[in-house]
């Protein structure tokens, strides 16, 4: 564990609390992509099957359980109690393409041919693009509530810190994970545009609106 990875994981945790806070405070999930949230649930379930096969640390296991449980809970909130506030008409990104694409990539370039490694690779590829329905929805509506922007920013910052974690681990441990690196780099690049708009608008206290 290093400072980049620890802060990244904590930002990932924070992003989930920000999202839950937004839904609870505004009593609405307007502007939140159910597709992105459902994709994250699929990502966590398919990646963390090693909960049953490997024990790394209490921290690692607790975080995995939290990510699975919280993503299931968010999908439930959007699907049931907050369904009337869900902006389905703007959440129109074709998420099935992302799942099929990630599945094909997972089969073409798996970490190994063990079923858990294929699912792990699939989840890595899927996580890289899972934010796209959310970014697409924000582009369609042209703006987002500030708190939703904070959520996406925390997620993007978590990914950016993972890049620094990998550079650090490469030099200190010789750690290499090409699949995670490439997918992680792609994932971070997807946030580039968003970062710029966030920093120039939200940080100056203005509404998050796209040009």
């Amino acid at each position: 564990m290093n400072i980049f990875r620890l802060v990244a994981d904590l930002l990932h945790l924070a992003s989930i609390f920000i999202l839950l806070l937004k839904i609870q405070q505004t009593k609405s999930c307007a502007g939140v992509s159910l597709k992105t949230q459902a994709l994250y649930f699929v990502v966590f379930v398919t990646r963390y099957l090693d909960l049953f096969t490997h024990f790394y640390s209490v921290y690692n296991s607790l975080m995995k359980l939290f990510f699975i449980a919280s993503s299931a809970y968010i999908v439930y909130l959007m699907w049931k109690p907050y369904r009337p506030t869900y902006s389905a008409s703007t959440d129109t990104f074709r998420a099935e393409f992302l799942i099929v694409g990630a599945a094909l990539l997972g089969l073409a370039f798996p970490d190994s041919w063990h079923i858990l490694d294929i699912l792990w690779s699939f989840s890595i590829y899927l996580e890289a693009v899972a934010i796209l329905p959310q970014l697409f929805q924000m582009t369609r509506t042209g703006e987002a509530e500030t708190i939703t922007s904070h959520y996406v920013f925390a997620l993007g910052a978590y990914r950016a810190l993972y890049l620094m974690n990998w550079i650090y681990r490469y030099y200190t441990e010789g750690y290499m994970d090409v699949i995670a690196w490439v997918a992680g780099a792609v994932q971070t690049i997807l946030y580039a545009d968003f970062f710029y708009i966030y920093l120039t608008r939200v940080m100056r206290g203005r509404l998050f609106s796209l040009p």
Binding site: R5, D9, H12, D50, T53, H54, Y56, N60, M63, K64, F67, D111, S112, W113, H114, L116, D117, W120, Y162, N165, Y175, D177, A180
Partner: peptide, 10 residues
């Protein structure tokens, strides 16, 4: 094969 022990990241 088994799951690579390097998959220690979240």
């Amino acid at each position: 094969s088994t799951v690579s022990p390097t998959h220690d990241e979240l």
